[in-house]
Structure formats: C-alpha cells, structure tokens
Amino acid sequence: MLEVGLNHFLIISAILFSLGIYGIVSRKNAIMVLMGVELLLNASNINFVAFARYGNLGIDGQIYALFVIILAAAEAAIALAIVLNIYKTFSNVNIDEIDNLKE
C-alpha cells in the first residue's frame, strides 16, 4: 500500500486532471483557463511516462510525452497571441463576457 507503484503515479495524475478541469470550468480569466489546460496536459504526460516505465512498453511513452510538451509550447504561444488580440478588442479577457466574433 505505502510501497510506491504504478497506481500511485496514476492517482497523482487523476488528481491533477480533475483539478485542471475544475480550473477550466470555474475561472473567468482566459489565462487561468490556459493554466488549467496545462495541468491537464501534464496529467496525461505523467500517465504516458508511468506506463512507459511500469508497463514494459519500451521508450515509446516517453517519446509521446516529449511530443505533448512540444504541442503544449505551440498551443501556449498561439493561445496567448489570441488572448492579446481579444484584450485589444474588448479591453478585458473574461471569457464569459466575450460572446461575439466581431466588434
């Protein structure tokens, strides 16, 4: 029970995943929502690496974790560019007030 195994890492990742979903659905600021998305990506990454080590599957899981990190970097850059544009147009970034596609 207290001996660390695969289950422990999966439980940490499950906790992080639900915290990330809570952050996404309950915050108004778009950047806080982005932080929630980062938590989700990290939770899935922990699963990839944990199964790569304990599942006897070779190195593939770590490579997919690397790909997820690269995609997260691209996603953060694009998302922040969009958020800056939204701020220029609406002068705030509260996602519940931004409900039209053009000014």
């Binding site: 980062e38 690496v49 690397l66 990190i69 690269i70 997260a72």
Partner: peptide, 22 residues
Amino acid sequence: LGADFIAVVQIIVYIGGILILL
C-alpha cells in the same frame, strides 16, 4: 520514473518557456 531527459525538458520548456509566456 526514470525519465531523466523528459524531466529536464519539462523544466526548460514549461518553467522556462510556457510559464514566462503566461
């Protein structure tokens, strides 16, 4: 978990890149 390279990439990309961007 024995993933040394992923750990270093995590620090460099996430803490050094994405967090600063945020």
